[in-house]
């Protein structure tokens, strides 16, 4: 084991290169979108909050870009409002 690690100990540069390539491919695909998601989130929330009360921490906005179709997923948890409930 020690002999093996002596010969392989220092080749960490390829690991660095591969980690960066994967990370940056991901980060580049996100650049420019983070602002859009923040804007969408705020405007969608403003509209919903006009009519029902919501917990701002329980809102999830997700944008997925595919080759053919991109989807925008919005999950909003609505707080129970017993007063306004019809039953």
């Amino acid at each position: 084991m020690s002999l093996f690690s002596f010969f392989t100990r220092s080749r960490s540069a390829p690991v660095a290169r591969d980690r960066l390539q994967i990370l940056l491919a991901h980060e580049r695909s996100l650049s420019g979108q983070s602002d859009l998601i923040a804007v969408l989130r705020e405007e969608i929330l403003a509209v919903i909050a006009k009519h029902v009360s919501i917990d701002r921490d329980k809102v999830n906005v997700k944008l997925e870009c595919g080759d053919q179709v991109s989807t925008l997923e919005v999950n909003v948890e609505v707080i129970d409002q017993p007063k306004s409930a019809p039953n």
Binding site: S10, R11, S12, A13, P14, A16, R17, L20, Q21, L24
Partner: peptide
């Protein structure tokens, strides 16, 4: 160090 593979070399950085 780059030659020994301990540090990213010029080609690695340029490629990225």
């Amino acid at each position: 160090r780059a030659a020994r593979g301990e540090m990213m070399n010029v080609q690695d950085v340029l490629e990225i």
